[in-house]
Design a protein around this nucleic acid. Structure first.
Length: 284
DNA sequence: CGCAGGCCCTGGTAGC
DNA sequence: TGCTACCAGGGCCTGC
């Protein structure tokens, strides 16, 4: 489940391996992978052929290949997407969705995605920042990330604080895993109403969000199964450092109480019943 | 407008 | 053994 640290790891890998190369051919193996490109897979491939990748950029969980035509190819890993760089001779796996081959004959870029939540689309003129993702807020790795602005926006939200953290138009890059980890560090239950957080508490929470993702980036990303693999095909291993996510029934590392799992927004949330008491008035 | 919830999708696993 | 039900969840979409 790639979140900001994992996507940044992929971006760095793509920049290293794809920047400056000319796309010779694109094969859309599964149409769902380009469902956002309404003109279809053939058109997607035709537009990209002959273009050179000038840079690989990212905002939140979206990344894009900037092209010499000033257009962009936006990519999202979804739940299970992988970017693999492989020699052409390596046989295709069962979940290959899109294949990019390059005119230099070097390694292909293969987008592999079991659950098909991820995909690609074209953004005309979007090399600097695709209009399609301009509504996505800056993420904590962005030099222009304005924490005080996010604190103020967070404190105007009437929804639960976890829902607010997962809202990519408020702060981007945070997913279910790092939201839970951040809330545990901040000793806050995710159903606490965001608007009820004091300014210092909101600041502290955002500090934890940033810390936990910076730490994950340093570890090379999170992996729970073989689904997340970085661009060179190596699994991340940050899972060993997770304090709450996936640890139902195991002792809280702070107080020893058995961690709980409960549904929130129709997905699992992990927290400590003692460190993160449920609010009387719950917001989701 | 803000907010909440449903849906998409596949493979692994639990349960019968 | 083979079937069904359920779970994982990011982001888009709809409806209130």
């Amino acid at each position: 489940m790639p979140e900001l640290p994992e996507v940044e790891t992929v971006r760095v890998g793509l920049a290293r391996w794809v920047r400056g190369r000319r796309i010779a051919r694109v094969d859309v193996v599964h149409p769902r992978a380009v469902r956002r490109h309404l003109a279809g897979g053939d058109d997607f491939a035709a537009v990209l052929a002959g273009r050179t990748v000038t840079d690989v950029l990212r905002r939140g969980k979206y990344l894009w290949l900037a092209l010499d035509s000033d257009d962009a190819v936006i990519g999202h890993l979804g739940m299970s997407g992988q970017m693999l760089l492989l020699e052409a001779a390596v046989p295709a796996g069962p979940h290959l969705r899109v294949r990019f081959t390059f005119s230099d004959g070097g390694p292909e870029l293969r987008f592999v995605d079991q659950r098909t939540f991820g995909g690609w689309s074209l953004s005309p003129g979007g090399a600097a920042l695709p209009a399609e993702i301009a509504h996505i807020a800056r993420d904590p790795f962005d030099p222009a990330f304005d924490a005080e602005h996010v604190v103020a926006a967070l404190r105007r939200r009437h929804s639960g604080v976890k829902r607010a953290l997962l809202d990519q138009t408020l702060i981007s890059g945070v997913g279910n895993i790092y939201a839970d980890e951040s809330l545990w560090r901040a000793k806050l239950h995710g159903a606490r109403r965001a608007a009820e957080l004091t300014r210092p508490v909101a600041r502290r929470l955002l500090g934890h969000v940033s810390d936990v993702m910076v730490e994950a980036l340093g570890q090379g990303g999170t992996s729970f199964d073989a689904l997340y693999v970085n661009v060179n095909g190596e699994s991340g291993y940050f899972d060993r450092a997770l304090a709450v996510y996936g640890r139902e029934g195991q002792p809280c590392r702070r107080c020893g109480a058995p961690l709980r799992r409960e549904p929130l927004m129709n997905r699992s949330s992990y927290s400590c019943p003692r460190c993160q008491p449920r609010p009387r008035r719950r917001s989701v």
